[in-house]
């Protein structure tokens, strides 16, 4: 985890996150994210082999609900908040590829 963050890494990540960055922002983010990751390198000195990662603070299990229908939202209210709607549905510009 010591490899320095490269500008092209930042550009790739921006694409994954659907953000477009100007050249100046790319430079700035490369620098700033690099600093933060460098700070994170203090963890790399640790031997954490065999430590179980924690994703949840508490160990609750099997939280489920009954399969009972509850009221849905009003379609008109929902579509009223959409940037674009048509024919009872949300409208978007053309989709360039199939879902993965």
């Amino acid at each position: 985890m010591t490899s320095p963050l490269r500008r092209e890494d930042v550009a790739h990540v921006a694409k994954l996150a659907r953000l477009s960055l100007s050249d100046a922002e790319l430079d700035q983010f490369t620098l700033q994210l690099g600093q933060i990751l460098e700070h994170a390198n203090d963890m790399s000195s640790l031997d954490l082999e065999g430590v179980i990662p924690t994703a949840h603070p508490f160990g609750l299990i099997n939280v489920v609900r009954d399969d009972v229908v509850r009221p849905s939202l009003d379609r008109d209210e929902v579509l009223a908040m959409a940037p674009d709607a048509e024919d009872g549905r949300f409208a978007v510009p053309r989709i360039m590829g199939e879902a993965p």
């Binding site: 549905r89 978007v92 053309r94």
Partner: peptide, 9 residues
């Protein structure tokens, strides 16, 4: 999907 100009969801 190909050649469409918009989609409804």
């Amino acid at each position: 999907i190909h050649g469409a100009d918009r989609s409804l969801v």
